[in-house]
Simulated assay, not measured.
Amino acid sequence: MTLHIETPALLFSATSLILLAYTNRFLTIAQIVRSLKKHYDEVHTKSILLQIKNLNLRLSLIRYMQLFGVLCLFLSVFAMLSLFLEQQTMGIYLFGASLLTLLISLGISFWEISISVTALRLHLSDLMEAEEEK
């Protein structure tokens, strides 16, 4: 089996865009946490504390998403370097490892999105209950 140096290079554009999306999610959630923390300091409610706890979990997941995404880029670079140095077998294994880390990153991303959707559904159910009471 032969792997060309261009193949690992293909991961760069995709992984870079994914990392940008992860960073945007992180910044948005961080802003929401700051806002909720300020609100919690004024009004100590359990629901705000639960929201902050949920967002803290999501921030941790995003950190791991970013970690595995960056690891994917590193492994891709090492795969390209191995192929450049005509170490075909090493390049193939490194490229496979980079694909695996990308897959892990995407899996964690799916988990984080699932948590987000569940939280949003809870908010919507509260609105629906308030609407039904009117």
Rank of each mutant, 00 (worst) to 15 (best):
L67C: 07
L67R: 00
F68R: 01
F68V: 00
V70M: 05
V70I: 09
L71T: 08
C72H: 03
C72D: 02
C72F: 02
L73H: 02
F74K: 02
F78P: 03
F78W: 14
F78V: 09
M80Q: 09
M80S: 12
L83Q: 02
L83G: 04
F84C: 11
F84Q: 13
E86M: 13
E86I: 12
E86Y: 13
E86N: 14
Q87N: 15
Q88N: 13
T89Q: 15
M90V: 10
G91C: 11
G91M: 09
I92H: 04
Y93F: 10
Y93T: 03
Y93D: 02
F95P: 00
F95V: 04
G96E: 05
A97C: 08
A97D: 01
S98E: 03
S98P: 03
S98W: 02
L100T: 08
L102T: 01
L103W: 08
L103V: 08
L103P: 02
L106F: 04
L106H: 04
I108H: 03
I108V: 11
S109T: 09
S109Q: 06
W111G: 05
E112K: 14
I113D: 15
I113A: 15
I113Y: 14
S114C: 15
I115C: 14
S116L: 15
V117F: 12
L120H: 12
R121H: 11
R121P: 03
L122R: 14
H123W: 10
H123G: 13
H123F: 11
L124P: 01
L124A: 06
S125Y: 10
D126C: 09
D126V: 08
M128G: 07
M128W: 10
E129P: 00
A130G: 08
A130V: 03
A130T: 05
E132L: 07
E133I: 03
E133F: 04
E133A: 06
